[in-house]
Design a protein around this nucleic acid. Structure first.
Length: 499
RNA sequence: GGCGUUAUGGUGUAACUGGUUAACACGUCGCCCUCUCAAGGCGAAGAGUCCGGGUUCGAGCCCCGGUAACGCUACCA
């Protein structure tokens, strides 16, 4: 297998998908790529992988840019800064993927598949029921040129699939690649499915777009999360089908929840927006992420002599990639908080004041809150009476304020869980939230009053507050969701203690 | 179910090419300081390295076999 030349100028990339809030995992992989490039005088590229139009969120891309910049992970090429290998947004490169899919069609390493989603679904269900691994049966792989032409003439839509060997040009029965952290990994081709490369909507899947772009953008090192290991053989086969050199692969450990599952918003705040809005400092987040998986000398102490405390620059100078350990590290908020406190205390009094003024008492934030308060108070100093929850993190309501008169605590908690799902799925504006909550109330037979009052108690810690929905909008989605989650978690803990 | 990866105190990491009572950081607990809470100082508890074999004078490090967790198993990334 021909691999990338060791002399090639280093080029790495992160490729987030704009499907929601910028994720802490993106920051982690971004940090690693950034360090790798800076250590080697290479280029760090940001590419937006927006090929899934069903999950596309229009505000997401801008949030990704903002939060990565906020963390100080600046990229050399990207959709917003340009560069010689653009465009850097995959939705603007569809023509390129189409041309490349054609190449594969012509050289026999890919084929058109006319199976419908329903057919495939049925087959998968049957296979699963028979305890067989779900696999594309290769129906369309055996189509004759005449049948294909007939299907096309009939206007049938199709996808393009990668033909996993053995086939005409390639009789190999397995693919082996090197993972720089784990050594060589082999997959038997019998275990690799004929991956869809081009969807019927004309957009490529991750696999095609990623390989084509990485090649065209001359990426030398693919540093990505561990979840991609299983699809790497497909990628290697794609490079081979095009006759291209394979990059180096570095699969990084997956950040975990406390229960060791892959980090998720169900169990952890994962949105970078949350961390920013909650008053975490970029150097603390960077430092903490740098502790995940190792790589820094374990006894490293930064400028003020605190062990395990270091800056981005110190990471560039001292981080050793081959020292990364591959067991998935638990993302432990307690340690992040400790670090954040460390950085907060080291701020000059003036900088600390400035930080408070910007984050906690920012004009924008205060203006919105004061708008909610103007006709609710009679002296200015009453302002604080109803707005404490906007500025405090610790707002657990006592049980007699959150359990409605005719409900049990258990029912109430269950309903709160539903509320969380409802507001999570809703667009963050008054009408959408209102509709979503009211709909839930109707389904579960909760009155609007009970419904809103419960959420108010959870979010504000009180039964008295400015209008709920308006308050939530000002308070922000990331923090609101986290507050409800933490409430539920705290109640669960309490319930367990009673047992 | 199949395939792949991983496995050191509660959490994150150490332990040179196998070599004294497995180290550090966070967290927890206690004490000091103190009007309170932090911060700071001092101290403690907590793992015998997933389990079972093997090699060796000696294994967390090597070999074999299990187990568990996690990931993938989509016209999502």
């Amino acid at each position: 297998m021909n691999s990338i030349s060791t002399e090639a100028p280093i080029r790495v990339r992160i490729a987030p998908s704009p499907t929601g809030d910028p994720h802490v995992g993106t920051a982690y992989i971004g940090l690693l790529n950034y360090i790798y490039a800076r250590q080697r005088g290479g280029q760090f590229i940001l590419r937006i992988e927006d090929t899934d139009r069903t999950r596309f969120v229009s505000t997401s891309e801008e949030m990704i840019f903002d939060s990565l910049r906020w963390l100080g992970l600046n990229w050399d090429e990207g959709p917003d800064v340009g560069g010689p290998f653009g465009p850097y947004r995959q939705s603007e490169r569809t023509e390129i993927y189409r041309e490349h899919a054609d190449i594969l069609l012509k050289n026999g390493t890919a084929y058109r598949c006319f199976c419908t989603a329903e057919e495939l679904d049925d087959i998968r269900k049957q296979q699963l029921a028979a305890k067989l691994p779900p696999r594309y049966p290769g129906t369309c792989r055996r189509l004759t040129p005449e049948q294909i032409d007939a299907n096309i003439a009939a206007g049938k839509s199709y996808t393009i699939r990668l033909a996993i060997p053995p086939h005409g040009n390639d009789l190999s029965s397995s693919t082996t690649f090197r993972d720089e952290l784990r050594g060589s990994i082999t997959f038997e081709h019998g275990n690799v499915d004929d991956q869809v490369l081009m969807k019927s909507d004309g957009y490529p899947t991750y696999h095609l777009a990623n390989v084509v772009d990485d090649h065209l953008m001359q990426i030398t090192d693919v540093i990505r999360a561990e979840e991609w290991i299983s699809s790497t053989p497909k990628h290697v086969l794609l490079y081979k089908a095009f006759g291209w050199q394979v990059p180096r692969f570095w699969h990084m450990p997956l950040l975990r929840n406390i229960d060791k599952s892959k980090i998720s918003k169900r169990k952890n705040p994962v949105s970078l927006i949350y961390y920013r809005d909650s008053g975490y400092l970029p150097p603390a987040i960077i430092n903490f992420l740098g502790l995940m998986g190792g790589g820094m000398p374990s006894d490293f102490a930064g400028g003020d002599g605190v062990i395990e405390k270091f800056t981005l620059d110190e990471m560039v100078a001292n981080f050793v990639f081959t020292d990364i350990r591959v067991g998935g590290p638990v993302f432990d908020l307690a340690k992040l908080k400790w670090l954040n406190g460390e950085y907060l205390r080291k701020l000059s009094p003036e900088d600390f004041f400035l930080a408070i003024r910007e984050r906690v008492f920012g004009d924008d934030y205060l203006r919105q809150i004061s708008a909610l308060m103007q006709n609710r108070i009679e002296t200015l100093t009453q302002f604080g009476d109803m707005t404490g929850f906007f500025f405090s993190d610790n707002v657990l309501p006592p049980q007699d304020t959150w359990v409605p008169k005719k409900r049990t605590p258990e029912d109430t908690l269950a309903f709160a869980q539903d509320q969380l799902a409802a507001i999570e799925a809703a667009d963050w504006n008054h009408d959408a939230l209102d509709a979503s909550l009211r709909k839930l109330g109707e389904e579960k037979q909760w009155s609007v009053k009970e419904n809103f009052m419960l959420l108010r108690a959870i979010l504000t810690g009180s039964t008295m507050s400015p209008p709920l929905l308006e308050s939530m909008i000002v308070f922000g989605k990331a923090r609101s969701l986290d507050r409800v989650r933490r409430f539920l978690e705290a109640q669960k803990k309490l319930a367990n203690q009673k047992k």
